[in-house]
Design a protein around this nucleic acid. Structure first.
Length: 796
DNA sequence: GCGTTCAATGTACCT
DNA sequence: ACAGGTACATTGAACGCG
């Protein structure tokens, strides 16, 4: 019989050297199925050295059967490696777990240049070779399994054919379960060996909400049991949480171990286990940590659940009562406040469900595009997402996958940034090259496999030679990157055209939009990938040639603009800011496209724009009255909110009312309010990331001092964590006067620091262009003088 | 001994 | 653990003064 199923998760089992691939999915009737494929024979490659006979080498390996008992076949094949034809042996191995070992041994054999692809996991090998796509539909010939397997699905099948991918946009109705938990710990971060889980809140996409709450004795065994039981009864396909890969799952695992429970929440009777890229795998389900997608929202500076939910419109922060981790214990201990804590926990899970609703489509599309299972794809860094997409394509064209080798870091020149003309400008059009680097890579066939090294003869097809750096690339045939990028750009166009056929609020539109976003991300990351020393297909000349052509492109465009009599006031990498003249700008765009073969088009028009003397920092007023603020403190996450708010207001007044003097008055008013401590405390918190582990720091930085204080109190902090601190009164260096924000009170705050080192610099950054100095901002304004006189008089 | 200067360190941004 | 280009705050050692 034949079934069609959507692939949710994949794992493999090896017993007595017999491997099985387990494909977990949902079929067209909505049944949960497990398809077991026992037929896939894995392999790796050995590249044969020049001058050696592949056949002889193959025979030699076969004759040593005793040494490699699970090698079942050795096949001489023709492949490409970095575009160059190579002779290789395809060595089939019955037991996937022995591949790495055999490859290592055969590497030493005389005549073997290098073993390749032994580092591709069996399950990934299976997906790639069979064209099986995670989060995609497949047809497969199966037989129902008679033997009772201890798995939690409606049907178990044995595959009688390889699954065949079927193009279908729709996503089956998945059961989604979200959860979050509260642990009780009196000091610092709770530890699973001492501190119980007191609340677990769950919610499902069928609208069911549940809480598992410990009693006064805080015995969490019953609630953990009830939670596990509930997960099994609801039987979710997707489990979502926030920060679960790093925290919740390991905490639950250890807690259960301690209490003599099995955390069996999967479909195969195993426990959650950490796997590739640090994701926690729950067999048969997709465990999705929404925290892993927080990087997709760069506007959210501090990646907390409540900030993300607020940003995505799931739950506004002002509608919430937020409870800090430090306060959990005291809230629990107080009968009345415990109710607030319960609500807080439930709201967290609601936020998780809301965020999941906003992100899951994208995660699913990303998974099917790059070919990594849904639970891995989020934890895989951008470089690895690109790489898996490339590996899929490499297999199709017979290009062998290079080993990841340690490369020395060699910097190279990047893009051009023009110095802006400071001050205010009216009517400025921004021209942008569309996907500049990907299109340059396509136009000049930049690719690891088309590179012609110095000393190599020019091929008959001719070469493209990059300006300045003189790297050469064959014009023909189309390189690896060119093919991949052309496909991505085309497919995005197709998706965007298809989107127009659906109303924006339809499911189809949402899915297509998620897909085009996924495609865009992979496209835009490909240049960076090419120049990343960690990339399997790293090749500096490729990246270096791309930027060289980029510089040539923008410089040519600038010259042409000036030739048209247009004034360029700023530009960065692939954009030109031009004094707007509709006809001339239109003509210019056409001429540039014609001359360079790269599309450039007007992106937006600012009715007014403000530049400081610095590059990469400006603010523009759009025709609809909105402000675009770029690079300035307003959009930086490491400035106190009070300074950001003041600067934003200043920019608004300057751009809309063109009144720097009024802006200065606003600044003074803010300063006054701050001195009276009328500004909310949270607006004084400064957030900074720990970019390394704490003892690697060479200088004493404020946020590191704050981090140390947190750690002394039992907090766990790691690289990448954000530390929020305030500056308090006292003497000495700044780093001696900071406290984690939750340890300080408003009275301790050094208000003058915020005046002189936050508000005034942020405001002066803008106002100094109009002749208003820091001193003037600090000088008491007329209004304030009045207040002071009154205060003096009344002795306040 | 003390204030000033400046390179180094560190973070976060832009495209 | 995608790239290079850029701004800016703070530290801490060197420097200059007397």
């Amino acid at each position: 019989m034949k079934i069609t199923f959507w692939l949710l998760d994949v794992n493999y089992e090896v017993e007595n050297h017999e491997p099985e691939v387990w494909l977990w999915g949902v079929d067209t009737s909505g049944d949960r199925v497990l398809v077991i494929d026992k037929s896939f024979l894995t392999y790796f490659y050995a590249i044969v050295k020049e001058g050696y006979s592949p056949v002889k080498l193959a025979d030699e390996i076969t004759s040593r059967r005793a040494l490699y008992p699970f090698i079942v076949k050795v096949e001489p094949v023709e492949r490409r490696f970095f575009g160059k034809p190579v002779k290789a042996l395809k060595i089939y191995c019955k037991d996937p777990d022995l591949v790495a070992k055999y490859a290592k041994a055969l590497q030493k054999l005389d005549g073997v240049r290098e073993c390749l692809e032994d580092d591709v996991r069996y399950s990934m090998r299976y997906l790639i070779d069979n064209g099986v796509v995670p989060c995609g539909w497949h047809e497969v010939e199966v037989e129902e399994e008679s033997e009772r397997r201890n798995v939690k699905v409606d049907r178990v099948y044995i595959a009688k054919s390889s699954p065949r991918f079927v193009e279908k946009t729709e996503v089956p109705n998945l059961r989604v379960l979200g959860f979050s938990m509260i642990c009780y710990g009196k000091e610092g971060a709770p530890k699973p060996d001492r501190n119980p889980v007191v609340i677990i809140s769950t919610a499902t996409n069928t609208g069911e909400e549940k809480q598992f709450i410990a009693g006064d004795d805080m015995n969490d065994k019953p609630i953990l049991e009830a939670f596990i039981d509930y997960v099994q009864r609801f039987d979710p396909d997707v489990i979502v949480g926030f920060g679960v890969n790093r925290q919740d799952w390991s905490y639950l695992n250890e807690r259960c171990k301690r209490l003599g429970l099995r955390l069996s929440v999967d479909r195969a009777g195993t426990e959650p286990h950490t796997s590739v890229y640090g994701h926690v795998s729950i067999t048969g389900r997709a465990n999705v940590d929404l925290f892993d997608y927080a990087d997709e929202f760069p506007d959210v500076k501090v990646k907390t659940l409540e900030n993300l939910a607020d940003y995505l419109g799931v739950m506004k922060i002002e509608d919430r009562v937020l409870i800090e981790d430090v306060e959990f214990a005291s809230y629990w201990d107080d009968r009345e406040k415990r109710e607030i804590l319960k609500r807080f926990s439930m709201e967290n899970t609601r936020c998780i469900m809301g965020i999941a609703n906003a992100i899951l489509d994208f995660a699913i599309q990303l998974s099917s595009l790059v070919g990594l299972p849904l639970d891995h794809v989020g934890t895989a860094a951008v470089g690895f997402r690109v790489e898996w997409f490339l590996i899929k394509h490499a297999h199709k064209i017979g290009e062998l996958v290079p080993k990841r080798v340690e490369q020395p870091y060699r910097p190279y020149a990047g893009a051009i940034v023009l110095s802006p003309k400071p001050g205010l400008h009216e009517n400025i059009a921004v021209l942008d090259f569309a996907s500049m680097y990907p299109n340059i890579m396509i136009a000049y066939n930049l690719s690891p496999d088309t590179y012609v090294a110095p000393g190599e003869p020019t091929p008959p097809c001719g070469v493209f030679e990059a300006p300045e750096v003189r790297h050469r690339f064959r014009k023909e045939p189309p390189g690896f990157y060119k093919e991949v990028l052309s496909y991505l750009i085309d497919v995005r166009g197709v998706i965007r055209a298809k989107m127009k056929e659906y109303p924006p609020d339809s499911v189809e539109y949402r899915v297509l939009d998620a897909r085009q976003k996924a495609v865009k991300i992979i496209t835009n990351a490909s240049y960076g990938y090419a120049g990343w020393i960690g990339a399997r297909w790293y090749m500096k000349p490729v990246a270096e040639a791309a930027t060289a052509w980029g510089r040539h492109t923008i410089l040519t465009a600038i010259k042409m603009a000036e030739g048209e009599g247009l004034t360029v006031v700023y530009g960065d990498t692939d954009s030109l800011f031009i004094k707007y003249d509709p006809e001339k700008v239109e003509r210019l765009a056409e001429k540039i496209c014609e001359k360079l073969g790269l599309e450039i088009k007007p992106d937006k028009i600012y009715t007014r724009i403000f530049f400081t003397e610095a590059k990469k920092r400006y603010a523009g007023l759009l025709p609809d009255g909105r402000l675009d603020i770029v690079g300035l403190e307003v959009i930086r996450g490491d400035w106190a909110a009070v300074a950001k708010k003041v600067q934003e207001k200043v920019l608004e007044v300057v751009l809309k009312e063109q009144s720097p003097r009024k802006a200065a008055r606003v600044v003074k008013q803010f300063i006054q309010e701050l001195r009276q401590r009328k500004i909310p405390y949270r607006d004084l918190v400064i957030w900074k990331t720990l970019t390394k582990s704490i003892d690697e720091y060479e200088v004493k930085a404020p946020h590191v001092a704050a981090a140390r204080m947190l750690m002394e109190k039992g907090w766990k902090l790691a690289m990448g964590d954000k530390v929020g601190y305030v500056v308090v009164s006292g003497s000495g260096r700044l780093y001696e006067r900071v406290k984690p924000y939750m340890f300080a009170s408003y009275d301790e705050v050094d208000v003058e620091y915020y005046v002189t080192n936050q508000i005034v610099p942020a405001a002066a950054r803008v106002l100094e262009c109009f002749g208003i100095t820091e001193e003037q901002l600090l000088k008491a304004g007329p209004e304030e003088e009045v207040t002071r006189k009154l205060t003096d008089f009344f002795g306040g």
